[in-house]
Design a protein around this nucleic acid. Sequence first.
DNA 1: TGTTAAACGCAACTGTGTTGCATCTTCGCT
DNA 2: AGCGAAGATGCAACACAGTTGCGTTTAACA
Lengths: 144, 144
Amino acid sequence: MAASFSFRAEAALRRRGGRMTRSRRALLDLIESHPRPLGPRELHRELRRRGTPMDLVSVYRNVAALLELGLLHRVLGSPAVRPCAGREPRCHHAVVCTACGSAREFHSRPLERALAGVRRATGFNVREHLLELRGLCAACMSRA
Amino acid sequence: MAASFSFRAEAALRRRGGRMTRSRRALLDLIESHPRPLGPRELHRELRRRGTPMDLVSVYRNVAALLELGLLHRVLGSPAVRPCAGREPRCHHAVVCTACGSAREFHSRPLERALAGVRRATGFNVREHLLELRGLCAACMSRA
DNA sequence: TGTTAAACGCAACTGTGTTGCATCTTCGCT
DNA sequence: AGCGAAGATGCAACACAGTTGCGTTTAACA
């Protein structure tokens, strides 16, 4: 099992000379435990509700730092962020439920191979790719 | 060869009861002819430069309408839009050059198949997907 | 050429995210 | 333990994208 998000995040932040405050820990825990990706505004609201408030500006700054470290990924076309699934800040593939907002990252060998084929065909020197599937998760499907 | 973007756009707009103004035609022509996707702000500036100015608000409204009709696609994580390549407002796959900004949509059978496989594996009822590859186009590569 | 509804332009507004700066807190060091 | 430097925070002010309301202009069609 991979180390938890907040553990990896703390380690990465310390490595770059960062420190650990109460509110920062609360933020990491929230991101890790919440079932769906939240944006800065939502994180701010939820932290206040939980009794560990953090200024909105600080939320923005923390989220920016974690994105830069590759520990968070953005939901495409949204301010919401989700913890990066793997250890490596690499796999950006995700499925997102359009009903409840829950997201899951995934890895697919055949998909990687198909993308490699596309790289060759386009003549581009492809450096990265963004991929997100949208639909209904199993829970929301049975609920409907 | 598929009908040009501005032709299809005009037809679609008329079908929904729309009309054709000078500035709207200039906007469609600009989007069609420009080598890279532009955002509302850039479209507004370029139209003024060309002597067929359109109010920024109107640019936003036109772009919104064309997006809704599926005639434009957004560049992910950017306000820029590009004309949809095919007749069907379906293929959202694109390669984008991170140097010059040029974009091209593409279609790939193997990729489609791989995505279908992922659908099955995730248990999601996938409705749509966003996919964008980023890198250097051939021209920018040889230039470097 | 007159009528009607779509487009347009302008001004004011909303909301998101950022910057500057003073204050507070962590953490290594004595 | 406690001191000091650097990081983190909070607050206020700001910058900027995008939107709304509304009066005016203009395309389309009779």
